[in-house]
Nucleic acid binder design. Sequence first.
DNA 1: CCCTGATTCGC
DNA 2: GCGAATCAGG
Length: 204
Amino acid sequence: MSWTDERVEILKKMWGEGQSASQIAKELGGVTRNAVIGKVHRLGLSNRAGSGGGAGAAAPKAEPKTKPAAKAKPAVKAKPKAKSPATENPKADESADPAPATESARPAGPARRAIIPAGQPLPPQPSANEIDPAALAKVNEVEKGAKKLNLMELTERTCKWPIGDPATEEFWFCGLPVQQGKPYCEAHVGVAFQPMSSRRDRKR
DNA sequence: CCCTGATTCGC
DNA sequence: GCGAATCAGG
């Protein structure tokens, strides 16, 4: 792929919006994030600060630097770095999942109390309390080994299942490796997406 | 570990 | 000009 006018436009736009190089690369397709970054630099819009003037406040740059030419392993390396506190991570996406229940940060046990949504309205919840016990058990188990990530630490491949009460310090996200395509790890996918047919004939 | 951008340099 | 490899940091 080459940098056509169109592609450059997209690049500029997205970079301006604070999108990460990898996201831009993904969007464009056919290029790696490195290519994107390289282009960004060549276009001279590396730092997103762009504050007034900018002037010649360029980094001093007084280090010849070593290079990995052929086969060298530079031990130390000075780094000017004129990074700006640009805004980052406007990630607040995907939330169209069946509202997860907060049900682990407690003594546990066989008790499958009424799942209390921590203050959030849970629109569609057909059979929320009809979760397969086995799946629940698995969840409880996996949550013990949760990575306890905070909002900032979530990525596209970390389970975004919330654990605990958001209003408390006792709150974090699972963080385990997600299942391909899903926002949750295997265990949580299990309770998040119910086949809605799991236990049809529940005679009582 | 995952990610981010920055830089260098052979092509 | 391009971008992989590498570096540096979160």
